[in-house]
Computed example of a mutant assay.
Amino acid sequence: MSFNSLKPKIETILANKNRNNEQLLTEVCELLQSNIEYYDWVGFYFANEAEKTLHLKAFAGEATDHTVIPFGKGICGQVAVSNSNFVVPDVKAQDNYIACSINVKSEIVIPLFKNGKNIGQIDIDSHVADPFSEEDERFLEWVNQVVAEKL
């Protein structure tokens, strides 16, 4: 399914007033994971500024032990500090990578901003080497923008 065809589905999910934010985010994760063949794990982490940690709030895919990540650690932790997109074509080439599954070959993490502040991120793991393009980045930036408007 194309990114453009997913956009109205994401907007519909986020417009549902009968679900809490965590349920809505889980639905967005499930939609992305089940409709983009190389999105094998999709999750939203949110920052706890006082503790300098990220906390997993919603995901689709295999369960992970990495529900709390310190700022600076792993790809997600680096994005919490850098405030920049991070595309990793080959996770084995990263010194500061936290392995979630032996099947993960690549990762993309896009920060989520609310009122100009990095409050979290969307994290995608893929079992395919180097599948992420600039189109993925722009789409996931859009996802985070509509999620931030909902929060």
Rank of each mutant, 00 (worst) to 15 (best):
E49H: 06
N144Q: 09
V79E: 15
V68Y: 02
D90F: 07
S106V: 09
V146A: 08
A50W: 02
A58M: 10
N21F: 12
N4C: 06
P111N: 13
K117M: 07
A15R: 10
E134A: 13
Y45W: 14
G72Y: 10
A99D: 14
A129Q: 13
C29W: 09
Q33D: 10
T67S: 04
D90S: 14
A63R: 07
H66T: 06
A63K: 14
P111G: 14
E27A: 12
S34A: 10
D123Y: 01
E51T: 09
D65N: 12
V68Q: 14
H55N: 10
A60C: 11
L54N: 08
A50T: 07
N16K: 06
K52M: 09
E107L: 09
P89A: 10
T53Y: 04
A63Y: 08
Y45V: 10
F132K: 00
T26H: 13
L140H: 02
L151F: 10
C100N: 07
N20G: 04
Q23G: 02
V104I: 12
V143L: 11
S133Q: 09
N115I: 02
T67P: 00
N4T: 14
I124C: 03
C29G: 07
A50V: 05
A99I: 14
V128W: 04
F59R: 10
N83R: 07
V88H: 06
V88T: 11
E51V: 04
M1F: 06
A50M: 04
P131M: 06
L24Y: 09
V68R: 08
S101A: 06
E62G: 06
A148W: 13
T53P: 03
V79F: 08
A148K: 09
V109C: 05
I98C: 00
P89H: 08
E62W: 02
V68A: 05
V68F: 01
N16I: 03
V91A: 09
A60R: 08
L24K: 15
K105G: 02
E62V: 04
Y39S: 01
A99L: 15
E49V: 08
I69L: 08
H66F: 07
